[in-house]
Design a protein around this nucleic acid. Structure first.
Lengths: 241, 241
DNA sequence: GTCTATACTTTGATAGAC
DNA sequence: GTCTATCAAAGTATAGAC
């Protein structure tokens, strides 16, 4: 499978053709060099256009990133919700979620890198929208974990923290996966589903009255301790550390 | 603890004072905005200097990143080797490695972000040097895992893949950790050590003749499927996907 | 919709006074 | 060692012809 085919697969829906070529080119460039190191000339060049032609389809470079980020996050969310709402035990559904999420991040690791690691370059309002999608993704995984604990199927030290670890493990696949390596996306998905089930599986029988999911939104906030907000011209010093 | 104190802690050794201020400023700026989005004016400004003063202490912006990356990776490696060579069972040593590595990435998440996520901006020769350090870090963890398997203490689906997952889990802490969140670095370290032990722990007794570490360097290459090489002017198209 | 040409800004890095 | 002033290059985005 060629580089362009693998990247392009995720963007079949986009029309017209020139716009899709720009998105595919932007994904590849952003993944390779990062958003800020990528020039509009580079994107346009990869798409076979002059630098000016980019602006017919996208108002700014950031709008390209926003499109990529939004579609990628929505796709992730759909995938996780489908696993959450699928049939079977909590273990079945958690394994399905991890398998699908990891396989996607391996298969589309180029897109995955942009989606997961270039968030900070989004404009503040776009950033906020994406963070909302990320929270919902975490909600989906946490629901499965919490249900497994409530059913006595799982035994975890802490529901929100375990959820965070599971999500984190899956996301980082986009960073390290190398298609020239020894594992296929399917194999990584299977391995990770196995490892995650080991993390949450109850060793003995059902464990009652322990680590029940908290009522209301008590745990919802902690979810995925949020990444930094994007830079702005007037706030140069961060108070986050 | 102030932002500067937390970041500065890791850089006490650097002299003269102006050089250290520049490194601390660069770490903060690179972590917030990324290497490419950070200007030398910004770094110098945070360090209380004029833009030109930066070049008395560092020849280029990249040299600053290299210094940060090298020190951070060396520190990580020392930490992991110390755990590997410490006393106790394989479980004790793996828990110690994860606890220390995770705690460091949480406490110094600002530095951690630069160390783990800005690799791609290094010059090719510097990049190669850093990759060598990363391989050695992975070697240290894999050694503990392999020893646990050999002793029948651990039962894992695959030694190199499990090692990769453990390392990946720890690294990603730098991305998501938020000091304003509910967990302290110590708590995250303890949680993650627990989760990792669940991943590798044998459920029954010793499991013999299974998943023995491969002889020689058979598994060494797979280690950490390498991140992409840094960009160069003449290689615009990547063949990695 | 795409091109060539270009306006305008910001960038990394240097020169030379002190 | 630090400053002010500045250069050359590269950046995003636009203008106007076709």
């Amino acid at each position: 499978m060629s580089a362009e085919a693998a990247t392009g697969e995720a963007w079949e829906d986009i029309t017209p053709d020139a716009a899709r070529r720009l998105v595919v080119a932007a994904v590849q460039a952003f993944a390779e060099r990062g958003y800020h190191a990528t020039t509009t000339r580079d994107i346009a060049g990869r798409a076979g256009m002059s630098p000016a032609a980019l602006y017919i389809h996208y108002k700014t470079k950031e709008e390209l990133l926003y499109q990529i980020s939004r579609v990628g996050h929505q796709r992730s969310l759909d995938m996780l919700r489908e696993a959450r709402d699928g049939g079977g035990s909590a273990a079945d559904r958690l394994a399905a979620a991890v398998r699908a999420f990891v396989r996607w991040h391996a298969e589309h690791h180029t897109t995955g890198r942009v989606v997961q690691y270039e968030l900070g370059a989004l404009a503040p309002d776009h950033y906020g929208e994406i963070v909302a999608l990320r929270r919902q993704s975490e909600d989906a995984i946490r629901a499965i974990v919490a249900e497994g604990v409530a059913a006595g199927e799982f035994d975890v030290p802490e529901v929100p923290g375990t959820t965070l670890a599971v999500l984190s493990l899956c996301i980082d696949v986009a960073r390290w996966f190398n298609p020239a390596g020894r594992r296929t996306p399917d194999e990584v998905g299977a391995l990770y589903a196995d490892l995650v089930l080991r993390m949450v599986r109850a060793e003995g029988g059902p464990v009652a009255d322990r680590d029940r999911p908290e009522a209301g939104d008590g745990g919802l906030q902690a979810v995925q301790d949020l990444p930094d907000p994007p830079e702005t011209a007037d706030r140069r010093r961060s108070d986050q550390q």
